[in-house]
Design a protein around this nucleic acid. Structure first.
Length: 478
RNA sequence: GGCCCCAUGGUCUAGCGGUUAGGACGGCGCCCUCUCACGGCGUAAUCUCGGGUUCGAGUCCCGAUGGGGUCACCA
């Protein structure tokens, strides 16, 4: 059977470095075995999924250099590759499960579930209590027909164990008493990840599920689903999780996590890929530089290590430096043009500064912060903290604004201004007071072109990082 | 807290019963050099602990400890 693997990102935010990490191993494994690498969009969370996020993820994956053989943009034999367009399949499949008794309708309200969880707090098992599991078939049919809202839950076996065969860990055993009756179909009729993932992986002929370790503990539910459907299960390979410096799962509050950040910061995609390839995997004992092609050539899961690797920006930068130095001068020029020194970026900059310079030789010094990375706030420490505020106030404010901006997909000047004004109101800051702080945090200057135009050109990743770093700097001031 | 996973320098890792425990990033020192960077050389720093198994454990087993993940109508 030929290898078919997939990466299944959820379009609910920025393109995540973890997605690239998992994609890399899927890609390499597929290529190693002459298989196919599939991109599937898991957009069943209709409240959080956005088209912009999906587009950003595709763009970022392309930038990093991983191309897929089947996907929402290029199609393929098992489409559609967007779960929101596959709704009918899930309903048909879940109906079979209800019919066979492997799943059941649950009419419990969110309020009841909340009370149930509160009551179970501190107990050894905190999953669904099974109230609706015992409902007579006729009553379940009747209530559904009457239009009462329901979800469909998996009827997990109540005894015995479920064994997950993980390629890297061997057989992992779970007592069935520990496993929740997972919701398969939400009351809006959309499937949860657990259902959609199993149905799609089956229908798309996925042979190996290579995904992050955070999924390991929900895999018994998937095992049970394959059993209930009487489908052959794929092989599971749970990759170690990328970590922050404190070893917790990599997260944007502690580490830049958006692939767009890495592009904006001037990392070369091949260097990033090489670095990700050293996270949990090694090509040889004394070697860590290798190309994608070399990784494919040498690839085997036998060379994985399972401790969660700390994602270290410093080491990434050192590796990036190696790649940069290996390019010839013309290549570097061309990379710089693609990055920020090209017409596109300059065209956005010129309207902001042309009225403010008298001579062209002022342009570069005046726009320096549009091209630099992290800024130094030491010289601004006094100005950053208005007389009526403490450093901590300003820090909290900045950090709060970053959170607010995280959810802001639209980074146009107008949207930024609206969001920032709304935030100012929320924290009871005078708008112009906040604007000045943001200006200094984003540019390390007190005089710049109009703030929101400037932020828009700097871009969401650079702006959020600078505001965060400035906030953290102020926190340390004390 | 229940369950699950993991455990070699600060970090990424090599090691798959017998090694002076290797490489890389970072640190420090020296050399190269008009400066800086590159490069070269050197140096400090690791097998979490406790029991076994074995002639012999970083390597195998058990336990403890520590870290992480997960317990949603999010993925």
């Amino acid at each position: 059977m030929s290898v078919r693997v997939r990466i299944a990102p959820s379009p609910t935010g920025d393109p995540h470095v973890g997605t690239a990490y998992v994609a890399l191993f899927n890609y390499v494994f597929a290529k190693k075995h002459g298989g196919r690498f599939i991109l599937r969009i898991e957009d069943t969370d209709r409240a959080r999924s956005t088209a912009e996020s999906e587009a950003a993820i595709l763009r970022a994956l392309r930038w990093v250099g991983l191309s897929w053989d089947e996907g929402p943009d290029i199609g393929g034999p098992c489409g559609p590759y967007r779960q929101s367009e596959r709704g009918a399949m899930y309903k048909t499949e879940v109906a079979k499960l209800v019919e066979s008794g492997a799943a059941y309708r649950c009419f419990c309200t969110a309020e009841r579930l909340e009370r149930m969880r509160a009551a179970a707090k501190g107990k050894s098992f905190v999953g669904y209590d099974g109230l609706c599991r015992g409902l007579a078939r006729a009553e379940s049919e009747r209530r559904a027909a009457a239009g009462e809202a329901f979800v469909v839950r998996l009827a997990m076996p109540k005894t015995g164990q479920t064994v997950v065969a993980d390629r890297l860990r061997g057989e992992v055993r779970f007592d069935n008493t520990q496993i929740d009756d997972q919701i398969l179909l939400k009351s809006d009729g959309f499937p949860t990840y657990h259902l959609a993932n199993v149905v799609d992986d089956h229908r798309m002929g996925i042979t190996h599920v290579i995904r992050a370790e955070e999924w390991l503990t929900s895999t018994p539910k998937h095992v049970e689903l394959y059993r209930a459907f009487d489908w052959p299960a794929p092989e599971w390979i749970h990759l170690p999780l990328l970590r922050n410096a404190d070893k917790s799962k990599i997260a944007k509050r502690k580490n830049p996590v958006s692939l767009d950040y890495y592009r904006a910061a001037g990392f070369l995609p091949e260097a990033l890929l090489n670095y990700l390839g050293t996270m949990g995997w090694s090509i040889a004992g004394d070697r860590e530089k290798f190309t994608l092609a070399e990784m494919i050539e040498a690839f085997t899961f036998d060379r994985m290590s399972l401790g969660g690797p700390v994602f270290d920006l410093v080491k990434l930068a050192a590796m990036n430096a190696d790649y940069l130095r290996a390019l010839d001068d013309d290549d570097v020029v061309s990379r710089l043009r693609q990055w920020r020194l090209g017409d596109d970026y300059l065209r956005r900059l010129v309207p902001l500064v042309r009225q403010r310079v008298q001579r062209m030789d002022e342009f570069v010094p005046m726009t320096e912060y549009f091209f630099s990375g992290d800024l130094d706030y030491a010289a601004l420490a006094q100005d950053l903290v208005p007389g009526n505020r403490t450093a901590k106030d300003v820090a909290d404010c900045l950090l709060g604004l970053v959170e607010a901006l995280d959810g802001e997909r639209d980074f146009s000047p107008a949207a930024l201004e609206a969001a920032t004004r709304a935030f100012a109101e929320k924290v009871a800051w005078e708008a112009k007071e906040l604007f000045m702080v943001v200006r200094m945090a984003a540019t390390a200057r007190k005089a710049t072109p109009p703030l929101f135009e400037t932020l828009a050109v700097l871009g969401r990743d650079v702006v959020r990082r600078r505001l965060r770093l400035c906030g953290e700097y102020l926190k340390r001031l004390r």
